[in-house]
Write a protein that binds this DNA or RNA. Structure first.
Lengths: 330, 330
DNA sequence: TGGGAGTCTGCAATCCTTTGCAGGAGGTTG
DNA sequence: CAACCTCCTGCAAAGGATTGCAGACTCCCA
């Protein structure tokens, strides 16, 4: 059997309380005693039983992480960030994947919330009502989404989009397309908003191309729509879609960036592996996860932060080979 | 406060024991009583406290999942499988990523083992000694690795490699290269072994190209070595490396498959997105995860299975555009 | 010398479930 | 009618850690 606090107590000739205190509130016990206890605990390989501790403290030492789709290379990076930061503070991460389905998302949260101290919810696709329901129950930090009164860390979409549009404008483009992602995605709405804010004053035309799945196949499907929209540049909701566009353009012998420039969002690993390599708005994926946990842990300490806490991280345009000067008007 | 078993008991006019039994061993209680209890429990939104239950049963309801590197698209798929199967049986998944470092792997396992009922260890890079140390402590299922006396699910590498070699042979190749992955990888050793077993009797020459990191950069780095090895076809440890090769070949104007054929292993999403699309040995990634959990759960039931349990899943060659007939000898 | 402050330590209750054991009710059998 | 069995339910004891409270001891000062 594994060593308990009683075993350590017996071996050290003290009471269990003293052992407990030596390990979790060291200041309260005499230095000499504490040292002896700690050493014996180490010798016996004592590790506190989390269940027992959790029973009394009400803390589990776990945080829940819910992502929409692990197959999208964006999310594993966020997971890494979350996981790394959590471990630094001795928290464990319970991971769940919703497969882009808001219904399972609700179910997963319900299932998870009893076993965690808080939840990090990444790119949630839930309705605001549902969201508010669960955030009332359990301390939740939103990633890539903003809802009033709920703690969140978001990426400065407006600023990123501005960089992208400025780049295109500098290259002489006048009419740019936007391939929209899921309507339920907050980021999608924000990017669209940023796009309008950036194009209108600059006198650029903006053409929105119907919502598609945020996947490679979605991009392939959107490619022909983009071509028929008569744009010289296109910004995709994410890199996966952009990669789909690139693939289909090549198949149709549409030159990139000769005939059309393409910009993605995320900067997933593969964006620099394809050819032409993809110009993209790099999102600080791992940082997003880290900051999310940071915020969560902080909120876990200060009982109530008197209102929602907010963090913002910034993205940066990475210019590669999929963007170039606008083709001369025919 | 959240409802406990006592609240339900009081509301239903029975003892806590009856409530507990109504929910977890329904057969032991009168149908009528059971129904009433269950209904009231539902009304009160009662959810058993896992910590309390775990304290007495010794079970946590969690399983630990340790992967080497989430950034490699192979692993998220495995994670999905594990996660999906676990949830079906009402288990949660604690995820950790080692970053290909055996040292942190040991640490993570130590940290995790107290909080889980069992561990799924995917593509472990630990030494056999270390491995044996941890598997003694905690029920562990290995994925992509085999060590005597330890439950494991593996992919039939020999068979897969045979398919790949047969394909190359049919295309007229006589001298094939193998870009090796991490020396600490069991899969790497197995693939090399399978390669020797498949090439020798067929009279093919096999050239091993030094071990590289199982990443895109690793592949880029290996490309020139491959070219200088004078082979007409190359099999890479995994798709990431193969993609690296492809990238570097293109940069050097080496035609694929005109000058050299390339085969990867894994069939990650991007293998069909590049051009030429990659011929690859498709691994049943998600299934690997599912079967791993299956096995773990089963072992968790039957106290001791009187020896190590084994499962094998099979891979299949997917032929795309990166392989073709061997170039005529010069 | 007495009293107060300060420092440690131990007792015992508590967190919430599960489960072995025993007992009550009702029915069956010899 | 007694003995016994079955079926269901409740009592009470874990399980391992944390923590409020109180006691013991030392030390200092008046």
């Amino acid at each position: 059997m594994v060593a308990t606090i009683y075993d350590v107590a017996r071996a050290a000739g003290v009471s269990p309380s003293t052992v407990s205190r030596s390990l979790s509130v060291p200041d309260l016990v005499n230095a000499e005693t504490r040292l002896r206890v700690q050493q014996i605990a180490a010798e016996l390989g004592y590790r506190p039983n989390r269940a027992a501790r959790g029973l009394i403290t009400g803390r589990t030492g776990n945080i829940g992480l819910i992502v929409t789709d692990l197959s999208n290379p964006f999310f594993p990076e966020v997971v890494k960030g979350v996981q790394g930061r959590a471990r630094e503070s001795d928290y464990s991460v319970l991971l769940a994947d919703t497969g882009e389905d808001p219904t399972v998302e609700v179910g997963l949260i319900r299932a998870l919330c009893k076993q965690v101290d808080g939840i990090v919810l990444c790119s949630s696709r839930m309705s605001e009502t549902d969201l508010r329901g669960v955030t009332g129950d359990t301390l939740t930090v939103l990633l890539n989404r903003r809802v009033s009164k709920v703690p969140a860390v978001t990426i400065d979409n407006a600023d990123g989009i501005r960089q992208a549009v400025a780049h295109l404008q500098a290259l002489g483009h006048h009419r740019v397309g936007y391939v929209a992602g899921p309507r339920t995605s907050w980021s999608n709405r924000e990017r669209l908003r940023g796009l309008r804010a950036a194009t209108t004053p600059a006198g650029l035309d903006l053409v929105e191309v119907g919502a598609v799945a945020p996947t490679f196949a979605g991009g392939v499907a959107a490619a022909d729509l983009v071509l028929s929209a008569g744009v010289t540049a296109v910004i995709a909701y994410n890199d996966l879609i952009a990669l789909g566009l690139l693939n289909r353009f090549r198949a149709k012998n549409v030159s990139v960036p000769g005939d059309i420039s393409v910009i993605g969002v995320d900067d997933i690993m593969f964006s620099e592996m394809v050819s032409p390599s993809l110009t993209t708005l790099a999102q600080p994926k791992e940082q997003l996860g880290r900051v999310g946990v940071d915020l969560l842990l902080q909120l876990l300490q200060d009982a109530d932060p008197s209102g929602a806490a907010r963090r913002t991280v910034t993205s940066q345009l990475v210019i590669r080979s999929s963007t170039g000067t606008a083709p001369p008007a025919r």
